[in-house]
Design a protein around this nucleic acid. Sequence first.
DNA 1: CCAAAAGTGTTATCTTTACACCCATGA
DNA 2: TCATGGGTGTAAAGATAACACTTTTGG
Lengths: 237, 237
Amino acid sequence: MTVDLAIFTIRDDHLHVLLIERGKEPYIGRRALPGGHIRGSEALDGAARRELREETGIDGLHSHLEQMRTYGDPDRDPRGRYVTVAYLALVPDLPVPVAGTDARRAHWVPVDKALADTPGLAFDHEVILRDALEQTRSRLEYTTVATAFCPEPFTVSDLRHVYEVVWGVPLDPSNFRRKVTRAEGFLEATGGRRVSDTGRPAALYRRGPARTLIPPLMRSAEVGATGIEWSPVAADA
Amino acid sequence: MTVDLAIFTIRDDHLHVLLIERGKEPYIGRRALPGGHIRGSEALDGAARRELREETGIDGLHSHLEQMRTYGDPDRDPRGRYVTVAYLALVPDLPVPVAGTDARRAHWVPVDKALADTPGLAFDHEVILRDALEQTRSRLEYTTVATAFCPEPFTVSDLRHVYEVVWGVPLDPSNFRRKVTRAEGFLEATGGRRVSDTGRPAALYRRGPARTLIPPLMRSAEVGATGIEWSPVAADA
DNA sequence: CCAAAAGTGTTATCTTTACACCCATGA
DNA sequence: TCATGGGTGTAAAGATAACACTTTTGG
């Protein structure tokens, strides 16, 4: 039994995922999601939190970590029967060295590139990554987790930028602002302002206590949206 | 590694869950969710489907089966380290003998009762059941799975009854009808009608191809709604 | 002053809600 | 005929989307 993590961040206007390069067989040299074995007396969440810390140096605070789905096809690992519990993590783009405690080389890779490059990811990690991506897009609609991408304090524009990058669509600044500032418990004004090279200084906020976003912020039926986050078990297979 | 199933159906205006009575230690005599070990070369979904068939005689067709969440606290089973992948199943209230192939006695128990009775359920099954209940309520908002509770063909009132029972709120018949009939791919008219003792005969429908429900059908901020389906990992624990 | 981003206001359009009202059947 | 649930219509209220407009900074 293992845990695997899809750790997302936003850098340079693109969603990135943290991938390691495998140093041994199987799939030597291929990219893979970071992960590892669950220790004897460790809870699943604990193992995921440990891996997150090892790979990024980020603790649970100021990041979002959530169990996503478990993958256990008998042939998903050529070494034998491995079941993995996949976790989704959203972290701010910190200037933290990504090397971690572990010798493996970890890289931030644009998600589009990770899914398009050949050879693909090791094991069934491409499937896991696709599921994690869709879950992230969906979470932004109904929850306040987008703030996990923003180092505090952040501006409404910072937050809008997160939505635009993850969903891949431009959003109207005025209407976005109204939505998020009116949603109870989403944002808390710090009173501070951030000046930038150009334009009026923006008010600064920190995360509010709300976890669910009411009303939800829907990505309007964009082209190519699968709309399927959950997967029912096929009747026949 | 095991799978456990929260199998829901609707009987007598109440949501019921299928529970077995444990015949051996630990938790002998206590009620538990049906489940069992995953066999050597079996996929997780396959094991869940097999358990569903063994317990209810229902195959994948005409029911909904979906992976929910994995539970793996080191102390969740006094016998040692057991990790269980919990599945959610929604089935119509069939007159099928529930005994199944297995000697264990299975009963349909009202969910409220299952959560309130003392002693409670074995293991961490109460937590699993609560999560499954919330997931079911949430699924009805955004997906078309409510139809899995209805034997085909069914009427709009049958479907509305599902929503009212699962959410525990009355819904306006006119507005409900408009919503579900206008949602693309939710219902397909069979052309038939069902006469009842009283009232005008109702048009009959079967499930349409859509899996997601656009626009969603929201339970309007009902009292006591947790609003939390997903659970982020606590930062400290 | 100008450019640029922050933030507010306004209006047309669509959606939701509540409820009046008609329809079709059995008794 | 009445009672009962099925089904349609409608108007008030609310939410959304598009965009004009004002504000505040740096250059």
